[in-house]
Design a protein around this nucleic acid. Structure first.
Lengths: 256, 256
DNA sequence: CGATGGGTTGATCCGTATCAACTGAAGTGG
DNA sequence: CCACTTCAGTTGATACGGATCAACCCATCG
């Protein structure tokens, strides 16, 4: 529902787990993601300030971690390409997925609080990120109210996003959860120029289930139910939304 | 688990719903909450900067709203005294409680994203808050890296807090949820100099249930179960923790 | 003194978890 | 190139935790 507005560029010291390739510095001002990433809403002058930093671009292969819980916090990351999942590790070793990030979205903001990342970030496919050194960004923020506001807005947005997820987890049933999830994905893909009605899921049923607070079998069954009702066409991870209005109705009714 | 660190002082324009009384300006530097509120971690010099702003103190009576969803965002609020609940309004009018705030904790950070509060804040008892005008604070932040960092840290902390709540809602059963809730309360009360083992709940069973994603009857039953197991002594809203270790075990096992 | 609201407890029902069997696709090694 | 394994996903049968419905207690308040 909210437009994310994170950053995308390249050039920063590689983190422990990420493979640092292509140490080319990318500039925000001519990045294709500039309108949905960090510079979103900033004046051209301030975006030029960001250019001066020149962020490192890093590739992360499918299945690899960008950072881990507890690892020292250095960078905020902006997704340039591909999809990530954020997760927490439970006491018994199982993982709880806390979000999925796509192009233009920021990751790692939870590391500011304690100087260490509070979650894991894992690539769901071959990806590319901009590493944004936090000390540089906050140094620059001291001279640019604009940038400072942009970062604050992004963090606030993350808080709002989590609010609505809590609402979902606290008060919706399986169908409502999956409907909300699909509508959210659809909307974010659309914002990035992809089809809103037909797409490929980058995450497994188990990951969707973990994120939505339900078991993978229930996710699978709910997909099947939607298909039976003519709302979706589902073939493994390929999804086509046939009746978006019905999905919205399910989501908005939010009975239960 | 994380120490909150919001602000407490007084003197700002009253918001629509709050009763503006005592327009005395409070100073952070000699506020008793200074170590757990906004100035936490700041240098004395920067705290003096905050003093210069002189925040308005506002009283909010039990049951009254401090702000509503959609209302124009002006201030961040720091609880000085009493307890608040934050909530979202669902499509069907029911409310979903998203948090409880006590002395030293900040409210309203979700308003930065879109210039309007994204949640409601309601006093659970007679309370007092410091209204911190956001434009003043961000103006001052431009000159003080310290303050800017403090605000960022606080927002990040809020993100981390919500992460763990999502974890709770996504993967814990009724007993684990209530155990986690009680331990968290206990710990926050202790941090504020109150007893960690005996306290008075400011919220109803229904509010606890909404927050934890369960029905009020289930909350009540779970309290009874804990009492039967000798873990708690429960008399309406008066709680005494008899076996904190057992509570921790329930919370940490996090089976399910 | 009746009304109201918060809380407890019991009986029952339903949604989702759990366990299990199966399919198909992809990867591995002889 | 084909058995074999492995993994994601689907589907069925059953179990169980918590929701729901309902009755009741108690304190507060007009």
């Amino acid at each position: 529902m909210s437009l994310a507005c994170p950053s995308a560029r390249a050039n920063a010291p590689a983190t422990a787990t990420a493979t640092a390739i292509e140490p080319l510095k990318t500039r925000c001002s001519n990045c294709s993601l500039r309108d949905i990433c960090l510079p979103c809403g900033m004046t051209p002058a301030d975006v030029n300030g960001l250019d001066g930093l020149g962020f490192n671009r890093t590739k992360v292969k499918a299945g690899q971690a960008l950072y881990h819980e507890g690892q020292a916090f250095r960078n905020i990351y902006a997704v340039r390409m591909g999809t990530f999942k954020s997760s927490l590790t439970l006491a018994d070793g199982r993982e709880q997925v806390s979000g999925f990030q796509m192009a233009g979205e920021l990751m790692g903001l939870d590391g500011i609080a304690n100087g260490a990342y509070a979650s894991n970030s894992t690539a769901l496919e071959d990806t590319e990120v901009c590493a944004i050194p936090y000390d540089q960004i906050s140094g620059l923020a001291a001279t640019s109210t604009d940038l400072q506001q942009a970062v604050s807005r992004l963090m606030s947005r993350e808080i709002v996003r989590e609010h609505s997820l809590m609402m979902l987890l606290g008060s919706m049933n399986a169908e409502e959860r999956l409907a909300a999830f699909l509508l959210n994905l659809s909307q974010r893909l659309k914002l990035r120029g992809y089809s809103a009605s037909e797409f490929h899921l980058r995450m497994s049923r188990a990951e969707i289930g973990s994120y939505l607070g339900m078991k993978l079998e229930t996710v699978s069954r709910t997909f099947s139910a939607f298909q039976q009702e003519g709302i979706l066409e589902v073939d493994k991870r390929h999804i086509r939304i046939l009746d978006a209005a019905a999905l919205k109705r399910i989501f908005e009714t939010r009975v239960h």
